[in-house]
Design a protein around this nucleic acid. Structure first.
Length: 637
DNA sequence: GCTATAACTTAGAACTTAAAAT
DNA sequence: ATTTTAAGTTCTAAGTTATAGC
């Protein structure tokens, strides 16, 4: 097993071949055509063109012709032509995956007890036992399904003697092992600076060596070059497979994808890859089949890469195309509510939910394989309640169901009378566990959407509604007279409106109440400080009136400044408190990263003179480099 | 059509590091 | 300088969608 440790096969690998010199046309990438590249979707994006032209005339344009290492990282793939549909790259070379470190057996003095007696476990059984021991504090390990699944899989790893001895999980005592791991964690924290530095450097070396690939003459960052280590499967929510053993991935499980003319990464000594293929119709570098669901896992590129960025850009362009025809589509589904065909009515009501409430499409799932969660098309009768009248509103639908990641969706929504009547119809003579839309699935819905607009699918509505909401909220909430922190609060509130729409939730931070109290006491202290400063200013003024000399005038000025400074600090704290309180259970990052056209945010920053760093951190700026480069302050989604 | 599955995007939690508070 | 808290990063599960094969 130790053969799998990465350093052992380092010597087999070559350094990435990067062209330091650009092609004749001045660009690094663009493979020479044996196929015609398509123009990227510029649409009505005049600004992008303008920016590009301007850029071409600038001295930077010339610099690009003599690239240095640094320049390489600033490659503007968004100024290049796209590949024809389906082709993802021409050249791909990488070093293969980094495998999980091999299992290190426990020291002799760390004991496992069965039925009160010390028991020495075989290495394989011990390894799986440590997975459980490491999770002992987690409430997972108290759950019946988790324990049952774990025990079943653990027994498979035992020797026959162990199997006959260990017959009940409740007689197993992992506490000593657990203490040992806690002590290890503690020791890691207490390590000296030098030791910590050493670990850091080792990680950097690994990243440098395996964290990048070469795709079409550009060095690109890989997102997840480390193979998932073995452990116990932790599903989200009430997952029927929780606690099962996620097995160790071996080179023999791995499919390598790279180009024919690249150096194929060698497998660790004594091992073989499952397969090496050369498929440039896909974007992944490495894949393997995972044993819990039997699904395929991939190693792919970082969001900053061309291949991901281009797709992301395209996603927002599709959403912008929807903007142009959304009114028509809305009128259409309103009409369809009256259709003679049940199928059409269901489709129209479902689409209304997807549009109005930003619900996900909702594929069917195999029962017993995953947690019981639903999206729009898979809603069941038990997930909605109809209220002809509720709290003074007519035709209210009460939604209560578990969505993706078993996050609860709870909402009371007034709907149009026609929708309400249709829902009553759909629910007639059905049991709670029956499908609400029994004549509909995501495939039917998406086929219909495709007919309405090329490239339209259910999820485009989420992107569209999220982005348009941000743009409109920013317009509404930004007060030109506000200072920067207040403007940022407005931004966060606009972002929050989107997160609420998309139901992006988080568990309230464990120390939320405490940190809120701390902040409040800070605010109180600051208020007192302000009162003091004001008193001092007053007396200084009085003093100056009597004395009428330069010195006391200056004193007044400096006291004035002090008051101002404290006022600003107080205001900043209050803004912070508001922001945090409103954000208690809401996660902003998901929408920011996946739903909001970054050009809206970039334009907003430019318009109000907000540094982009206040809105996007380093990683986000890398992901959205294309948008930061091309969007001007008048960008319209 | 229907099902299986491959490929890719989206998701919150856990972990790590940096910054702020003491 | 040390501890606490917040921000940022990593991890991998869980979705969506297109397509292949019946």
């Amino acid at each position: 097993c130790c053969l799998l440790e990465p350093p052992l096969f380092v010597s087999f690998c070559s350094p990435p071949r990067i062209k330091d010199e650009p092609d004749d046309d001045g660009f690094y990438a663009s493979p020479k055509e044996d196929s015609k590249p398509l123009k990227r979707p510029r649409e009505d994006d005049d600004k992008a063109k303008k920016a590009k032209n301007k850029d071409k005339k600038s001295p930077e344009a010339d610099k690009r012709k003599k690239p240095k290492k640094e320049e390489e990282q600033k490659w503007k793939w968004w100024e290049e032509e796209r590949y024809p549909e389906g082709i993802k790259w021409k050249f791909l070379e990488h070093k293969g995956p980094v495998f999980a470190p091999p299992y290190e057996p426990l020291p002799e003095n760390v004991k496992f007890y069965y039925d009160g007696k010390v028991m020495k476990l075989s290495t394989k059984a011990e390894e799986v036992a440590t997975f459980f021991a490491k999770m002992l504090d987690h409430e997972y390990t108290t759950k019946e399904i988790f324990r049952k699944n774990f025990f079943k899989d653990w027994r498979k790893e035992m020797t026959s003697e162990e199997k006959s001895t260990i017959t009940s999980l409740s007689k197993c005592d992992f506490t000593h092992m657990s203490q040992y791991f806690k002590a290890q964690t503690e020791a890691r924290k207490q390590m000296s600076k030098e030791e910590k530095q050493k670990i850091k450097e080792e990680n950097e070396r690994l990243l440098k060596e395996y964290g990048y690939c070469v795709m079409d003459n550009h060095k690109e960052r890989i997102a997840n070059f480390k193979i998932e280590p073995p452990g116990l499967f932790r599903g989200r929510g009430n997952h029927p497979k929780m606690g099962m053993l996620k097995r160790r991935i071996m080179p023999e499980d791995i499919i390598i994808n790279c180009s024919k003319d690249s150096k194929v990464p060698p497998p660790p000594p004594g091992h073989k890859w499952k397969e090496v293929r050369h498929d440039n119709k896909v974007t992944w570098l490495v894949s393997w089949t995972e044993n819990i669901q039997g699904s395929i896992k991939y190693i792919m590129l970082n969001p900053s890469s061309r291949i991901k960025g281009e797709k992301d850009w395209q996603k927002y362009e599709t959403a912008r195309r929807l903007k142009k025809c959304v009114d028509k589509i809305r009128n259409q589904y309103r009409e369809d509510w009256k259709s003679k065909e049940m199928k059409v009515r269901q489709r129209a009501v479902a689409l209304y939910f997807i549009d109005k409430l930003a619900l996900r499409a909702g594929n069917e799932k195999e029962e017993g394989e995953t947690a019981d969660t639903v999206g729009c098309c898979s809603l069941r009768v038990e997930h909605i309640k109809l209220h002809p009248e509720l709290d003074g509103q007519e035709y209210v639908v009460e939604f209560d169901f578990l969505g993706k990641d078993s996050i609860r969706y709870y909402n009371k929504v007034p709907v149009e009378k026609r929708v309400f009547k249709n829902l009553q119809l759909f629910m007639e003579n059905k049991q709670p566990e029956d499908d609400l839309f029994d004549r509909l699935n995501t495939s039917i819905l998406n086929k219909h959407l495709q007919d309405l607009m090329e490239g339209l699918t259910a999820k485009v509505f989420r992107t569209y509604n999220a982005s348009i909401t941000l743009q409109q909220q920013l317009k509404e909430l930004t007060n030109p007279d506000d200072n920067i922190p207040a403007k940022i609060l407005s931004y966060n509130r606009a972002n929050r409106a989107v997160a609420i729409l998309c139901n992006h939730q988080r568990a309230p931070p464990k120390t939320f109440e405490k940190s809120m109290m701390n902040l409040q006491s800070k605010i109180d202290a600051k208020k007192e400080q302000l009162a003091d400063a004001r008193r001092e200013l007053k007396s200084a003024k009085a003093d100056a009136k009597v004395r009428r000399d330069e010195k006391s005038k200056k004193a007044v000025e400096s006291k004035k400044k002090a008051v101002q400074r404290i006022e600003e600090q107080l205001m900043k704290l209050e803004v912070q408190a508001t922001d945090r309180e409103e954000n208690k259970q809401i996660a902003l990052s998901t929408s920011k990263l996946n739903y909001l056209d970054p050009r809206i945010s970039v334009a907003w920053c430019k318009k109000w003179g907000i540094p982009i760093e206040k809105i996007y951190n380093k990683t986000q700026r890398e992901k959205f480099a294309w948008a930061i480069d091309m969007a001007e302050e008048d960008y319209e989604f």
